[in-house]
């Protein structure tokens, strides 16, 4: 660690820990094997705090707030609770809202059994959805020769947007619209096959936490995402020439 780095001390779940001031709560928790559920976060990609799954209770200067662990830098003297009945309830509620606002049919999904959304629902004890399902009319773009985007399964985590911009450098993906009309798009909302910036690298496919992005030719439960390349690519990009 360079000498210019300032170390901060804090407390996570009754454990006294220390970290580099540029680290997030999530980074420090991971270093100390303290589990915090995530969904939009992915090691190797920039943090956006979009899903709020990693909310933790942060007490600082006598104030307790809910903060996304992935996007909150550590501060001296922070008191952090990563798991409480309130957090469990909120996390389950977030999951239920995600399920209610899309069309997630695990039984026929290519990612069934390997889906992060499904996995979190299981691990966080989501037994049912308390909110009315929206059943939105969403499209499937299978124009690309090798890949498909099924907006029914998209949770707008923006991993695809970030990996395309930050790692591949193509920035084919972005986000369009607002509220319930928000969706990820290729180039200027063209069919994927017509998106000239797309290099066809497939990174977006593999970072997608659900079955929203997948390769053609796979049946139910057959799409296994491989993400181990990401931290390596990131490290190579950041290395001094």
């Amino acid at each position: 660690m360079p000498s210019s780095v300032r170390v901060k001390t804090l407390r996570i779940d009754d454990l006294d820990v220390a970290g580099d001031e540029q680290q997030t709560i999530f980074d420090v928790a991971v270093e100390h094997a303290i589990p915090i559920p995530t969904l939009c976060h992915l090691d190797g990609l920039g943090a956006v705090g979009a899903c709020r799954m990693c909310l933790v209770e942060v007490t600082s200067a006598n104030q307790t707030r809910l903060q996304p662990a992935c996007a909150t830098p550590i501060e001296e003297g922070m008191q952090i609770v990563t798991n409480s009945p309130r957090l469990q309830e909120y996390r389950r509620m977030i999951l239920e809202l995600l399920f209610a606002e899309g069309n997630h049919v695990c039984a026929v999904c290519v990612s069934n059994g390997h889906c992060e959304l499904q996995g979190l629902a299981q691990s966080l004890g989501m037994t049912h959805v308390r909110f009315p399902y929206h059943y939105p009319q969403r499209s499937v773009d299978a124009s690309h020769r090798r890949f498909v985007v099924d907006h029914n399964r998209c949770i707008l985590c923006t991993r695809c947007v970030r990996v395309c911009a930050e790692i591949e450098g193509a920035h084919t993906w972005d986000v369009m619209g607002a509220s319930s009309q928000t969706q990820v798009i290729t180039d200027l909302n063209q069919p994927w096959a017509e998106a000239e910036t797309c290099t066809g690298c497939g990174k977006c496919i593999h970072v997608c936490p659900t079955g929203a992005l997948f390769e053609k030719g796979y049946s139910v439960a057959e799409m296994h995402k491989r993400r181990q390349f990401l931290p390596y690519l990131r490290a190579m990009r950041e290395r001094e020439p």
Binding site: V108, V110, V140, G217, S219, V220
Partner: peptide
């Protein structure tokens, strides 16, 4: 209608 055909066996089995 509108679903990828690769999904059909699992979908129809339901």
């Amino acid at each position: 209608v509108g679903r990828p055909f690769y999904e059909m066996p699992a979908l129809m089995a339901r």
